[in-house]
Amino acid sequence: MAHQKIEAIVIGKLEQVSRNIFNVEVELIDVYTRKPLYAKKFAVHNSGIRRIAHYLSDQIYFALLGSKGSFDTRLAYVTVTNKGNGKREYRLEVADSDAQNPQTIFKAASPILSPTWSPDQNKIAYVSFKNGRSEVFIQYPFMRRKTQKLPYFDGIASAPAWHPNGKSIIMTLSKNGNKDIYSYHLKDKRLTRLTTDIGIDTEASYSADGKRIVFTSNRSGQVQVYIKQLSTGVIKRATFEGSYNAKAVFSPDGKSLALVHRVDKDYRIALLDIATKDLIVLTDNKLDESPFFSPNGGMIIFASNKGDTGVLSVVSILGRQTFELASKSGEVREPNWSQYSQ
């Protein structure tokens, strides 16, 4: 990227046609051929302009790079603020992909953990302690529909993650005290046990094709990341570098994992090539948490907390450049990035 030449220009026009309606016109022009690579014109309601900007960014990204962009997608994350007298306020927020336009969808005096978007972007599963213990809930942020609580299975219920078909959720349950990964089918309410080791198995999530799960386990005596091939039932250890690797998620192409990796006393975000086992540390803070891929796999979002400020950052995989998306007073935790709009 040493010699950047301008290869294309975007020309846009915003025309107000009534109080709340705008005409939007966008053209992407190839500087050399002078031909349009992309052109679009439509009318937008005032409140939809931000969404349209992201939609157009995706279209331009696609026209230039031939792959889908991640602009018209949404984030979910948890914020924590001190309210005095030792009381804290937890908020589950959703925001646009650039962390702008944040909306609180659930507020509680007790911890909220592990928000995760459903594949259709209409639901968020998360863990709440509002009844005094960790339970998994499904909330419908865009619909007037009541939040649903998954049935109680005894012990902890936590770390929910959706199957790519949206029909079931995997989570950690500790029936009989043994923390294992279970799949819960939302419609026929069938519970299937996916791991049986006597150690801790948790933080499971699916590959995009639904054929594998990745999870954290201390079965070796250390906290490491494992992959289970669901068709064969074979479980293989994925991480060998370092004494603590956890909370891994598959990249959209299924070839890499983003995970939390301990370096001395610090916890950082790393990228693991599953086949070659090459591990690259991407961040350099004290306590980075919860990596998650952008829908096109080009970036990883993560949270870090510095003093009394919580920061959401993204790191680009190719350039390995980190930039802050948002910083908030208090804490920011566990960002989760929605899939592409349907």
């Binding site: 950047q4 301008i6 294309a8 025309e15 331009i60």
Partner: peptide, 18 residues
Amino acid sequence: LKIISLVAATVLLSSCFT
């Protein structure tokens, strides 16, 4: 009637948000 010209952007989109 308002007409606002949007920015002319280069191909740097790959690593930044609008």
